[in-house]
Design a protein around this nucleic acid. Structure first.
Lengths: 345, 345
DNA sequence: TGTTAGCACTCACCTCGAGAGAGTGCTAAA
DNA sequence: TTTAGCACTCTCTCGAGGTGAGTGCTAACA
């Protein structure tokens, strides 16, 4: 991979990709010399193109068509070639205004972010809500509900709340419950949810052995937070944008992608923040999941209390305005983090 | 509308619709006599068909094609003609088993119901989660969070919970907060959320005038429950089923429908239970929203504590197995209500 | 009077071939 | 090393002609 292209090859590759991103049409040698000033003839370009194809940066749909970039080509473009392209003042204003006028409370943030993101990028957007497993346990409290049930409320340091109705086993009083909560709190407060595991729970169990039934259900409350099940949710936006892309004019392709977007578990896996990079680009076949190997994805993470805790992403054809997307994602995550702060998180 | 069709016209209409539902092809006179035993010749059928078209029950895509049912035709079919068709034992088992194995806690119920419903019907499914505005206020409680914030938790009679982080205004103690909660609870306990309106809030305001700032934010907690904003959510399932229907082979149509399904506000409007009917069928142009006037919709309501509180729906082409859909919806709502009961609601 | 056979006619759909256009690879000259 | 010239390839579009399903009408029939 230390293989570097000479200056002219770079220019040609860049021109081809820029053009293809704009037009979605295979680009030929003539087009290049007409639209980009390289000071050479089409024949020369053709030679360069043949070389670039040999090297794997370009592909040819059929013998007598122009070239289109390969995944490798895009990768090189993203890493080395493209000009950064920042947001227009208008777009920045739109983002700020959107949050100001549309988001009146914290629960709307994520859905509205998804809408906004697809509106700005003209691609499908995905927003993963905060992952509770990255938060720390603050306390558990039982609130009265009726004679036979009690409401367990669990609070995290980041202000997220989980709750569950729990059947009260016979012979247990409200005072007992307070006691149980106290024991649990003493043991768990300050731990991250993904640290609250079997051993710790067993230890707890020994201490609350008197009331195993109740304990069981209140542990459910804890346990479900360490599984990817609830609380976390993926909001989608702009799925209809797929129809506007010429590469998806075949309904079967759209169908395949939409089918994937319905598989929540898959989306969690894709979006769960793995690396610490701020913005990450995955191109075509670099994607693990076959359904979207014709797509590229730009993901970025946002934070609460300085903790990386959620992800936003854009999904579109490999022919994507990468430079623009990256700027948008940077700006959006910063705004999002700020808005969450405003709501006390 | 008191106009009744004679026996043979009914038989013909029924045969045409049954056939069209199965094949999605305009049906001609020959087909009818071949497949359905009416004991007359194609010519006779043609005459009947011409009559039925005059009366508005049938339409002709173009001069030399067979007939297809009109919205009016389907309506008559649903109201008077079709045979009830109940679920197969296999389908009933699938539904029960789905809930047993997949739904481990109450939060999964709705999403899984959407998946299950689209799986069984092969259409797009919609599940509206319980409407908090139909519940009654039980109590509000403040839980400590940190020195500057407090966690307001609001509980309904049906066991639904809303919560919000609230900034503590200077000079207010936890005791003050308890007092405020008490005042609010005295005034509101037992009221339905859609009854908690301006007047009542003003009255409350007079009583808690001491701490207007805090009051404001804790009222937000109440207020947001009377708006269609949060808590309620629409889960979708099987959007890709649209692609399988021949009537939607034009991507533009799919796009239009998907665009509509992204408009949450619209979905609330459509799904919010209006009438008391158990199952309701809306056919083609009977739909208020232009995007789905090529579709039919079968909706049904489910209940918590005997209160009609949410809706499930199926959306598909007008050419739909109405009889089957109605049975499915009846069975599903009954199961759903039961599952919710199992989880203490 | 209701039903049926016969027949001319309509219209969507499929296939095929011709022509245009864009682009390539190769060769030979500059 | 670059460029001009040229034959070749492949896709796309368009129109013509043929096919088949289905209709409406008319006239004969029970």
């Amino acid at each position: 991979m230390a293989m570097t292209l000479d200056e002219r090859k770079r220019k040609v590759l860049r021109a081809i990709i820029d053009d293809y991103i704009g037009t979605a049409e295979p680009v030929g040698s003539r087009t290049i010399v007409r639209r980009y000033e390289l000071g050479v003839s089409p024949a020369t370009i053709r030679n360069e193109m043949a070389d670039l194809e040999m090297l794997g940066y370009l592909e040819q749909p059929h013998t007598s068509a122009g070239r289109i970039p390969s995944a490798k080509g895009y990768r090189f473009y993203v890493d080395c070639l493209m000009d950064p392209q920042s947001l227009s003042a208008h777009e920045e204003a739109l983002i700020r205004q959107w949050y100001d006028t549309r988001v009146k409370e914290v629960n709307q943030v994520f859905q509205e972010s998804a809408k906004l993101l697809s509106r700005i990028t003209h691609h499908v957007s995905l927003v993963l809500t905060p992952q509770i497993s990255q938060c720390t346990f603050k306390y558990l409290q039982f609130l009265p509900f009726d004679e036979r049930k009690v409401l367990g409320v669990m609070v995290t340091d980041t202000g997220l709340v989980e709750n569950k109705l729990i059947e009260i086993p016979a012979g247990i009083s409200m005072v007992d419950l307070q006691h149980i909560a106290e024991v649990i709190n003493n043991q768990l407060t300050g731990l991250r949810f993904d640290q609250i595991r079997g051993e710790l729970l067993a230890e707890l169990h020994r201490q609350v052995i008197k009331h195993p039934l109740l304990f069981q259900t209140s542990l459910d409350l804890l346990r479900r937070t360490s599984q990817v099940q609830r609380g976390e949710k993926v909001f989608l936006g702009g799925t209809t944008q797929l129809f506007s892309q010429p590469e998806f004019k075949d309904p079967e392709k759209v169908k395949a992608i939409l089918a994937m977007l319905e598989e929540d578990q898959l989306l969690y896996d894709i979006l769960t923040p793995a690396d610490t990079e701020e913005v990450h680009v995955t191109i075509g076949t670099e994607n693990k999941f076959s359904g979207i190997q014709q797509c590229s994805m730009v993901t970025a993470t946002y934070a609460i209390h300085g903790k990386t805790i959620g992800t936003i992403a854009v999904l579109g054809p490999t022919r994507m305005e990468y430079a623009k997307m990256i700027s948008v994602m940077q700006f959006m995550t910063r705004q999002l983090t700020e808005v969450l702060k405003k709501f006390g998180l």
